[in-house]
């Protein structure tokens, strides 16, 4: 990883020069966020009336290589905002079309979060999980799905310690510029 491949903003955001950011005027990034190479942020979609931002990222977010974030389709061809909270880490090759992803969320590699799904705070989504449309995942959940296509989602309780663990790991991911997954039960 070369230093010249990255742009570092005043607020501590680190953005790879190889990231594909469309419609940057409609993307809001809080600070200390890492956007790796080949990440696609689709902020150029037509928005519903009253919305100014298409994608909103909190602080200490970590988007690994190949992550795609696009605002969910709302009515007709209009899209609504895709909000991603602070201390959220998204693994390699994951596609996010959620309406809301909370704070302290870990989304493993190769997951797919279908449109308008809602992920609340303190959630761990295991690798290769597919979250269906309009699905809601409550706080303190660990989500996994069976390997068969269209497999049943398993939503289990996540111990409360993970609130701290995920926050610490997101900061370490920012410091080391690498996705640090949390050990899960």
């Amino acid at each position: 990883m070369e230093l010249v491949d990255w742009i570092e903003t005043e607020s501590g955001n680190r953005i790879s020069k190889h990231a594909l950011i469309h419609g940057s005027d409609h993307i809001l990034i809080a600070g200390n966020t890492t956007i790796s190479a080949k990440v696609e942020l689709h902020g150029d979609k037509p928005l519903v009336q009253g919305s100014t931002n298409a994608i909103q990222l909190g602080k200490f977010c970590y988007l690994d290589e190949g992550v795609v974030i696009s605002p969910p389709l709302c009515t007709g061809s209009r899209h609504k905002i895709c909000k991603i909270g602070s201390y959220t880490m998204i693994g390699r090759g994951t596609i996010v079309e959620s309406a809301n992803v909370g704070n302290r969320v870990v989304i493993g590699p190769n997951c797919k979060l279908h449109k308008s799904s809602t992920i609340y705070d303190c959630v761990v989504i295991k690798p290769n999980t597919i979250v269906p449309e309009n699905y809601t995942i409550p706080p303190f959940s660990i989500v996994s799905s069976s390997k068969s296509p269209g497999g049943v989602l398993r939503v289990e309780h996540l111990p409360e310690s993970y609130k701290k663990v995920v926050e610490l790991n997101s900061k370490l991911s920012y410091i080391n510029s690498q996705f640090i997954p949390s050990d899960t039960p």
């Binding site: 230093l3 501590g12 200390n32 610490l168 900061k171 920012y174 410091i175 080391n176 690498q178």
Partner: peptide
């Protein structure tokens, strides 16, 4: 705080991936 967290991180857990580390 980020500066304190870096200071409290052992060298073996720091990569050379960022300027701060």
């Amino acid at each position: 705080k980020l500066e304190v967290l870096i200071d409290c991180t052992p060298s073996i857990e720091l990569s050379r991936g960022t300027k701060a580390s």
